[in-house]
Write a protein that binds this DNA or RNA. Structure first.
Lengths: 135, 135
DNA sequence: CTTGATCCTGTAGTAACTACAGGTTTTAAC
DNA sequence: GTTAAAACCTGTAGTTACTACAGGATCAAG
């Protein structure tokens, strides 16, 4: 069995997409990726459509979308029932989540900075950080 | 069986500490919390020392420390082998993680904002966000 | 002494992967 | 044509930090 010009193995798909080879199988299991064709011996055969879809998923993940978000996006794209309005609103909702996370982390950052500034870095078993957290 | 002045049940400990009642059992299982005394009938009996420890854990979690970080902190505190220097360094290391996370999220925020600004919010199945992610 | 609240245990589910074992197929070299 | 290594196959288990449930026991109040 030979893979023709457009056809690639899972390993090659992993390389080209930047997605872990095991993760590809995982996405298939949870039906984010379709069941691919198989060789006579049972090896998966992928093509450019799979690659595009997997890259889409990877980019969405890098932007912090959950797999559920991505599933919904892919569904409306597959259906062609999506609108720019819908996608925009989903993106805004996600952006708001991200903003909230940044706010939360900044609060933590501030607290940690205060903690660090109160430590003399001495070598005795006494520390204002521990004292505060145990108060 | 009666719980005396200092002694409290798991439910009360959960309330006072702000930690979920099931989570308390989880922390015991993974040995972050010690095995408490038991009543004749097998119910857990906690006291103020448990409460302090659990609050310490909760505060650390709220600051984004992992359970492994907290385990190490508790170990050196229990041992009395901790120093201000050590705690300070751990805190700085964690602070750096937090800073990195903020940077990562800000990058995402920027990308998402760009995406949103490019959408006209129309009702047709065409959207620059989808186009970009699928490119 | 009954009843309802709380507790007990073990186990399973969540998100999003990642890694492994033990076996088969494919490919390249000879 | 054979062999050996690389890549693939499957199912399953592990990761983090919980949370929730079922089915039963205990506890406190009336």
């Amino acid at each position: 069995m030979q893979y023709s010009n457009d056809e690639i193995t899972r390993g090659v798909l992993a390389e080209k997409s930047g997605v872990n080879i095991e993760t590809i199988r995982y996405y298939e299991k949870i039906a984010l990726m379709p069941n691919p064709l198989r060789s006579d011996g049972g090896h998966r055969i992928y093509n450019k459509v799979h690659l595009k879809r997997l890259q889409f998923i990877r980019r969405c993940r890098e932007l912090g979308f959950t797999l559920q978000d991505i599933r919904e996006l892919l569904n409306i794209v597959d259906d062609k029932t999506y609108t720019c309005d819908d996608v925009k609103n989903r993106t805004i909702a996600h952006l708001n989540d991200i903003k909230q996370k940044i706010r939360d982390l900044k609060k933590i950052e501030k607290t940690l900075k205060n903690f660090v500034s109160e430590c003399d870095g001495g070598l005795k078993p006494e520390c204002p950080i521990i004292d505060t957290l145990f108060a």
